[in-house]
Amino acid sequence: MKARFWASLACLSGLALVLVSCGKKEETAENAPAGQPAATPIDMSTVGSVSGAVKLEGPAPKPKKINMGADQFCASVHPGGGATEEVVTDASGDLANVIVYVKEGLGNRTFDAPKTPVELDQKGCMYSPHIVTLMAGQTFDVKNADQTTHNIHPVPKNNREWNKSQAPGAPDISDTFAREEVAIPVQCQVHPWMKSYIAVFKHPYFAVTGANGSFDIKNLPPGTYTLEAWHEKFGVSDQTVTIGAKEAKTVTFSFKPATGGD
């Protein structure tokens, strides 16, 4: 009887250890320095660019009101309550916070990740910027400008998931993502309205539309590319564009609120 009890206890402990070590193994494998091939040289004398705008056809849904009463600091920063940033447009229907990137057409070219880190700040219990874009292997720093505690929890499908807390005045949290992924939701469970997205690319040809809905992707080698526009609520929209040597192309994407894409 006693032997069976201890055997069961040992099995349960073993199972718990296996589960915990499984989580850690993933972390170790991903943090290991990858043997990256050298970047493919780009002939800068022939590069072109693609720019344009993203429009929302039809009336934009109204921003939803956020009740920040759960945290006195957040409520004091937004006395009238906050508003969601999932759909941001101007009076002309120009859509902000859309990621536009080269989805296909770069072949086997490889690119070095920039040495400068990308920042994700927590300001007034909101993420700033709402959309973060970076290259695989590029460092991104999470800052806390607020006088309250946050937890930062990216929920990727193709990268390592983590969840870390950051007290007021705590040092930046620095991390990287190893694999391309569009886009990784980021949440703060202390303040459940805080949502952001991180898009990770293996090349530098991406942009996020500003308040006027415009984007600009520079230094593209001549070629035919599939461009994709990604929006957190409206989904994706693709277009094919051919760039000649030193050519600047203009592309317009449009989304429809009801159908979720064009």
């Binding site: 945290d71 505690t149 007290a167 202390v190 303040h191 459940p192």
Partner: peptide, 12 residues
Amino acid sequence: YGTLLPPMVGGI
């Protein structure tokens, strides 16, 4: 948060 008395805000 490494303590028995964490900041009691929001989801915490």
